[in-house]
Design a protein around this nucleic acid. Structure first.
Length: 380
DNA sequence: AAGTCGGGGAG
DNA sequence: CTCCCAGACTT
């Protein structure tokens, strides 16, 4: 392992590389909200949000989040439901639960100071190898590697590394490599420079090599192979789950919603009552749905009609939801996980995106009175 | 090492 | 459509 790194570094001008990379970063970096100061807490929040999530997507979430929770104490005291509402639509919801748990631990065990060692910081919930290195280097100037997808792509090209970047040991190799070449003067500029380069120059497809500040150091470019790197095994296709969901109103016009289980997919988010519906079609599917609602919640349900279909693709599975609307009759027994809420109050609850789409169809159909979009698309 | 966990933008 | 994004956790 050590052998591999030193052979890759043979004849590699570390100093010049750092100089070119960091100089470019200082000139060309995008102004981003988490670059306005070096508060470790804010850097941390940004890095968690940026896990598997684009910069442009994160920006508005980051602004709202920091405005609501300007310091660790504020975040530590927040209610989970409010937290999920702030995270609604960002995905990977366990990130924000883990972040709060970790922040609470920093407040209690570390006197409210983000630990400055990888051993301590990296043990916190939701802080993996990447996030640990990113926060320590950017906030504290500690020379630790921060290897994300961008960095693996950039390094695989510069050093012509053909190892599969989907494998864990390849990331370890990259980290060893970074430890050897990272700038001791400016670890923050170095790590951010690699990521920024990956984001705006050394892109997955059609990299802008002619604009690259480290083109002269790039072995893939020298060989004309930049498009062939990195090597990555592709993921298989996802399986489909068929669901039936319904927007149900009671006699007082309230809408029935249900809280998802506290673990697993979309944990603790709310949704319109949903049941598996394999192999059934309307109206049998609607009848089966009503039967399940009676068994689970003791409620008589009448499906009035179809709203449309919603298809939602996750990382590892696909939902095909047939959405309906209808009425719930009799007294509604509310619990912590089952509620009847007035329509204007719905926005207080965190919903997954596919259920937001169902609600949009409901408003469209009910609003126009004559039904309309049955295509699963939200109309303008 | 392989699954689980969201959602969206780009080509 | 496919790819992949400032990844981490669980088994």
């Amino acid at each position: 392992m050590k052998e591999k790194v030193s052979s890759l570094l043979k004849d590699f001008p570390k100093e010049k590389f750092c100089e070119d990379l960091i100089g470019w970063f200082q000139r060309e970096q995008r102004p981003l909200p988490w670059r306005e100061d070096k508060d470790p807490y804010k850097i941390w929040v940004s890095e968690v949000m940026l896990q598997q999530t684009r910069v442009d997507t994160v920006i508005p979430y980051f602004r709202r989040f920091i405005e609501k929770y300007p310091d660790m104490r504020a975040l530590a005291e927040a209610r989970e439901e409010e937290l999920l509402k702030m995270w609604e639509g960002l995905g990977y919801y366990s990130r924000v639960r883990n972040l709060q748990e970790a922040v609470r631990e920093v407040c209690e065990k570390y006197g409210g100071v983000v630990p400055k060692s990888r051993e301590q910081f990296g043990k916190l919930k939701g802080v993996g190898p990447y996030t640990a290195g990113a926060v320590l280097s950017i906030a504290y100037g500690i020379p630790e590697p921060a290897v994300d997808g961008n960095v693996m792509r950039v390094l695989s090209r510069i050093f012509l590394i053909g190892e599969d970047i989907a494998k864990a040991k390849t990331r370890n190799l990259m980290e060893d490599l970074i430890r050897e070449i990272i700038s001791r003067d400016d670890p923050s500029g170095f790590n951010q420079g690699l990521m920024e380069l990956g984001a705006i120059v050394c892109k997955p497809k059609a990299p802008a090599c002619l604009l690259c500040p480290v083109q002269e150091h790039c072995r893939a470019f020298a060989a004309g192979l930049q498009e062939e790197y990195p090597v990555k095994t592709k993921s298989g296709k996802v399986k489909t789950v068929h669901l039936a969901a319904a927007v149900l109103t009671d006699e007082r016009g309230r809408v029935l919603i249900r809280k998802r289980p506290k673990e697993g997919l979309l944990a603790n988010l709310w949704e319109f009552p949903t049941e598996e519906a394999d192999g059934l079609h309307f109206p049998d599917r609607a009848a089966d749905f009503a039967e399940r609602m009676k068994r689970k919640h003791g409620i008589r349900v009448e499906i009035t009609g179809p709203l449309g279909k919603v298809e939602h693709v996750f990382s590892h599975l696909k939902w095909q939801i047939s959405a309906y609307y209808g009425r719930a009759e009799g007294e509604i027994m509310e619990t912590d996980t089952f509620k009847a809420v007035p329509l204007p109050d719905l926005e207080k609850y965190p919903f997954p995106v596919p259920h937001q789409k169902i609600f949009a169809m409901y408003q469209g159909d009910i609003g126009t009175e004559k039904g309309g979009s049955r295509t699963g698309k939200v109309r303008p």
